[in-house]
């Protein structure tokens, strides 16, 4: 692929000065909205910023939505008009947003121990306030943290990461400019295992190059799991010191 910008320099540095296997600056916080929701989190991955609010498990607002044997999760993604470089207002029923909602929903329906909460519902609201690539991965990571904050039992963290392929070079955790220039995949794993719960690739890529991309994305997921785990433990410790546990 040709581009005006040098995505990956011969010295092995990317646009923002990272090496191929480095993730962007990762910052997360949990229990950020204690009054308005049962579980909440904020995730910043590079310049992408996502706020997540979880309400529930609670009785469903619509009786017809209740499932008799397990929990039902409904996901809503709100994209702020000011989140992109060019201001753009998207309707709520935008097909890309709908698709993202349903993939997040499917991932978490399998990740939470759903049979413990029959006939109840969890509402997940995701607010994308700034986007710079890797929106889906940030949404999944934010939802994981918010569900943990809400005290919903889960098998393990669900962590997501992207990886792209530039010629023969694998690049981990891409920003917006890199995403627009090369094929990339988003992968979510259950904790630090090799179990993949989501794999999304929307572009053409040679078959033999898929495996290195997946391997890189998986190592990125494991790294992000550690970062999130540190934050959750730090939060737990501070709560214990305050005497609220």
């Amino acid at each position: 692929m040709t581009s005006r910008i040098e995505i990956y320099s011969p010295e092995g540095l990317r646009l923002d000065g990272r090496r191929w296997n480095e993730v962007r600056h990762f910052r997360c916080a949990i229990n950020t909205h204690p009054v308005s929701s049962d579980g909440s989190s904020i995730i910043e991955q590079g310049n992408t910023k996502v706020i997540c609010n979880v309400i529930g498990p609670a009785e469903p607002t619509l009786r017809s939505r209740a499932l008799l044997d397990r929990l039902c999760i409904s996901v809503k993604v709100i994209v702020a008009p000011f989140s992109t470089i060019e201001r753009r207002k998207r309707p709520q029923n935008d097909s890309r947003i709908q698709e993202m909602c349903s993939s997040i929903q499917h991932v978490f329906e399998d990740a939470v121990i759903a049979h413990l909460f029959p006939r109840s519902q969890i509402d997940v609201n995701l607010y994308i306030v700034a986007q710079d690539g890797g929106v889906l991965q940030a949404c999944i990571n934010a939802t994981t943290l918010a569900l943990i904050d809400a005290g919903v039992p889960m098998y393990d963290y669900v962590c997501a990461c992207t990886a792209g392929m530039l010629d023969r070079e694998v690049l981990l955790d891409m920003n917006r400019i890199e995403e627009s220039d090369m094929p990339f995949l988003t992968m979510a794993t259950i904790g630090a295992t090799r179990k993949v719960s989501l794999l999304q690739l929307e572009m053409k890529v040679q078959f033999d190059r898929l495996e290195p991309m997946m391997a890189a994305a998986m190592s990125g997921c494991h790294h992000i799991r550690n970062l999130m785990d540190n934050e959750v433990r730090k939060h737990g410790k501070s709560r214990r010191q305050m005497g609220s546990l």
Partner: peptide, 26 residues
């Protein structure tokens, strides 16, 4: 608070009410 805007702010009230505003110029 937001790098993609010309100006941004967030206010949260005690009762959980919260608002985020982003200003962009074109």
């Amino acid at each position: 608070i937001l790098p993609t805007t010309n100006g941004s702010a967030r206010i949260r009230l005690d009762d959980g009410g919260e608002c985020i505003v982003g200003v962009k110029a074109e």
